Simulated scan of single mutants.
Amino acid sequence: MTSSLDALPKIGAPATRALNGAGYTALRQLAGVPRGDLAKLHGMGPKALDIIQAALTEHGLDLG
């Protein structure tokens, strides 16, 4: 199943809150953002980062 670029993937409530708090509301906004920057957000773990990367890869995009 292909993820939408207009929504965040299903990554769990803490990670979703962390992204929303940092101003990210759509997958497309995460393209090019350094993985290390996202990892610093409280609630963002390695599993969530892997899910985000996989969702971006489906669209030919990447984390920075």
Rank of each mutant, 00 (worst) to 15 (best):
M1S: 14
S3M: 13
S3P: 11
S4T: 11
S4P: 12
A7N: 15
K10C: 01
K10Q: 12
K10M: 11
I11P: 06
G12K: 00
A13R: 14
A13E: 13
A15E: 00
T16R: 01
R17D: 11
A18Q: 12
A18E: 08
A22K: 05
A22D: 06
A22E: 10
A22G: 00
G23R: 10
Y24W: 09
T25H: 13
T25R: 11
T25Q: 14
L27T: 04
Q29N: 11
Q29W: 04
Q29Y: 01
L30D: 09
L30E: 02
V33C: 04
P34T: 06
R35K: 15
G36T: 00
G36K: 10
D37H: 13
D37K: 03
L38F: 01
L38K: 07
H42W: 15
G43I: 02
G43A: 09
M44Q: 01
M44W: 01
G45V: 09
P46A: 11
P46E: 15
K47I: 08
I51E: 07
Q53D: 07
A55T: 01
A55M: 00
A55G: 10
L56V: 00
L56A: 04
H59Y: 02
G60F: 03
L61E: 09
D62S: 13
L63H: 04
L63V: 07
